[in-house]
Amino acid sequence: MNAPDRYERFVVPEGVKKVSYERDTKIINAASFTVEREDHTIGNILRMQVPISLNFFEHLSFQGVLFLQLHRDPDVLFAGYKLPHPLQYKIIVRIHTTSQSSPMQAYNQAVNDLDKELDHLKSAFEAELAKHSREY
């Protein structure tokens, strides 16, 4: 009877911004991005793409295998997301960086990198598809 409409889950209501940005009032270079009508699909890839620097302890214990990790952005201190409630169709992405970068810069970079990664994935899949259809 009073169930919310199913489309509520993926249609952004009029007058609501898809992404809003809020600086942290206490910590410099920390901010939250509220993304409307998105879920783990976007939240998790964004969080994983925003590269996080290693903390001191990790640095000490894995010195040998750090090569790959050292390529990552040392400017991002924290990146995480949450889905506040299953019936609130939004996610909150939180990013904290050093003063060398900004949360907005890290966010934009993550979206751009993911976009390029997917472009690459698509052409890789298409090439495989063409190869496969030739073989059979």
Binding site: Q49, P51, H71, R72, D73, D75, S101, S102, M104, Q105, A106, N108, Q109, N112, D113, K116, E117, H120, L121, A124, F125, E128, L129, K131, H132, S133, Y136
Partner: peptide
């Protein structure tokens, strides 16, 4: 405000492909 890129280059290998079935490595 361009940051450094950390893009990855995933690879794909299709093992089996039918109209309604696909198996591949990512």
């Amino acid at each position: 405000m361009e940051g450094r890129s950390y893009q990855r280059f995933p690879t794909v290998k299709i093992r089996e492909l039918k109209n309604d079935y696909a198996k591949f490595e990512l």
